[in-house]
Amino acid sequence: MGTILADRYRLLELVGTGGMGDVWQAVDERLARLVAVKVSPLHGAGDHPALRLHREARAAARLSHPHIVNPAFVVLDSPVLTYRQPENREADPEL
């Protein structure tokens, strides 16, 4: 099975990568739903990765648009940020 982050998110498939981190499709094991998980790299100049993701989550939470996915959960003291799955699909309970 996939890697578990924050004792909650099981990584399924890498969706994309960029300068601010990797985005994975994952299953929220507590809520049995698909989510997108952004994992910030631990290297790079500037702020601590967790602080950068917390700022990103606060900024994204202020936005409202049909083409913007709002953050669902920020893992404190960790470079992990989760977003609700863009499509309204529920996770397969067997995942």
Results as ranks from 00 to 15, higher is better:
A60E: 03
P66C: 08
A72H: 12
D47C: 07
A36V: 14
S78E: 12
S40R: 08
L31I: 09
G21I: 14
L76P: 04
P66V: 07
G46V: 03
R55N: 13
D7R: 12
R33S: 06
L81S: 02
S78A: 11
A72Q: 13
E94K: 12
E87W: 10
A60N: 01
A57V: 08
V15E: 14
L42N: 00
Y83Q: 11
K38L: 09
I68V: 15
R55M: 07
L14W: 14
T17Y: 12
E94T: 07
A59I: 05
E56R: 00
E13S: 04
G16C: 10
D22W: 12
R58G: 13
G16T: 15
A61D: 14
L51Y: 09
R52M: 10
L31W: 14
L34V: 13
R33C: 12
D47V: 11
E90W: 03
E29M: 05
G16W: 01
L12M: 03
D28L: 08
V35M: 04
Y9H: 09
R30H: 11
D28K: 02
L12D: 03
E90P: 09
N70H: 02
L42R: 14
V69A: 15
V69W: 09
G44T: 05
M20P: 09
A57E: 09
P86R: 07
V15G: 13
T3I: 03
G18Q: 05
S64K: 10
L5A: 02
E13G: 01
N88T: 15
G16F: 03
P86V: 05
L76I: 04
L81R: 09
L95W: 15
L12Y: 00
A32Q: 12
A57Q: 13
P66D: 15
